[in-house]
């Protein structure tokens, strides 16, 4: 890890060390890291001659004192709710109550990459990316188009699936069961609007993890930030909490819409090499351990 990445990691560690419940700490760390990334990208956009290291250093300066922020966050994020969730694993009565309340629970919506996967049989699929108009137009009043997910603006990026994920066996862990149900290793080509100059092609694995279990006993959405990985070439990938904002490869876990006893997560991993033949997900947190090996097939069956 370079000196700048280390400084950033130290800042994030200090700003979140007061948050005692692990999943909360990981989630807040991820949020602050995303802010830093946006700030750095902005500096490089406004000052094209600025190096990434300088952009990172200036972004950190403008974030403020990590100790002070850490004290405030620690005061706000009390751990007792998180421990209550952990304790509820052993409380059947509470679980049944939660099951009744949460039966119709809906999670979060997501960009429909599964539709892209279905369409990919025909070859290259245009990758629509929302363009933040105010970045391009310079008009400070241009609206953020983030609510218009149906409107995709064509960019120069195309994505092609080069390896396929077609479902793994079901793994049992704790009081829930997991399976990776679908996905692909994608090749991205073209220049990103938000990251001009980033080398092409790039590769990312996206797969859907389906978790079945009673509400309160299943994989907590923020515990998904603890999923790390390894590929068949020996490369390792940190979990979201550890890796986000460090520049090292990591697994980005995002909760998707679930229903009833089933929760779904999309796991995205940049820079998985195209020659990887399998990818293993590893989880070890809160006394629960599991691992799933995901074959990456060259041919779709």
């Amino acid at each position: 890890m370079g000196a700048d990445n280390r400084r950033e990691a130290e800042w994030l560690d200090t700003a979140t060390k007061g948050i005692r419940f692990g999943p909360d700490r990981a989630a807040v760390r991820s949020e602050l890291a995303a802010h830093l990334e946006d700030k750095e990208a902005d500096f490089r956009r406004i000052f094209p001659d600025m190096s990434p290291e300088e952009a990172r250093a200036r972004a950190l300066e403008e974030m403020g004192q990590a100790e002070e922020i850490g004290r405030e966050l620690g005061r706000i994020h009390t751990p007792w709710l998180g421990y209550l969730w952990t304790a509820s694993k052993w409380t059947l009565g509470l679980t049944l109550t939660l099951a009744l309340v949460l039966w119709g629970w809906r999670g979060l919506s997501a960009l429909d990459t599964w539709r892209m996967l279905e369409e990919a049989n025909e070859g290259k699929v245009p990758y629509g990316a929302l363009v933040y108009e105010y970045y391009l137009s310079g008009d400070p009043e241009a609206p953020f188009p983030r609510q218009e997910w149906e409107t995709e603006v064509e960019t120069g990026i195309t994505r092609t699936p080069i390896r396929w994920v077609e479902g793994t066996e079901t793994v049992r862990a704790g009081l829930y069961a997991l399976q990776v149900t679908r996905g692909a290793l994608w090749q991205f080509e073209g220049e990103s609007v938000e990251e001009p100059g980033v080398q092409s092609p790039r590769y990312a694995l996206e797969c859907e993890l389906t978790v079945t279990g009673l509400p309160g006993l299943s994989l907590h959405p923020e515990a998904a930030y603890y999923i790390s990985g390894t590929d068949s070439l020996g490369n390792t990938y940190q979990n979201t909490g550890q890796g986000h904002g460090t520049g090292e490869p990591y697994i980005l876990a995002m909760e998707l819409e679930g229903q009833g006893l089933e929760q779904r997560f999309r796991l995205s991993v940049w820079e998985v090499p195209p020659e990887a033949e399998w990818f293993r997900l590893d989880y070890d947190w809160g006394g629960v351990e599991w691992a799933i090996t995901v074959p990456l097939k060259e041919e779709r069956t």
Partner: peptide
Amino acid sequence: QEGTLYPILHALEKEKYLSSYQQQAPTGR
């Protein structure tokens, strides 16, 4: 100081003045 926004947001969310949700940016973040 930009980091100081987050204790404010989190405190407001804790008191239910705000709610939150995750959404993926085009870069995957």
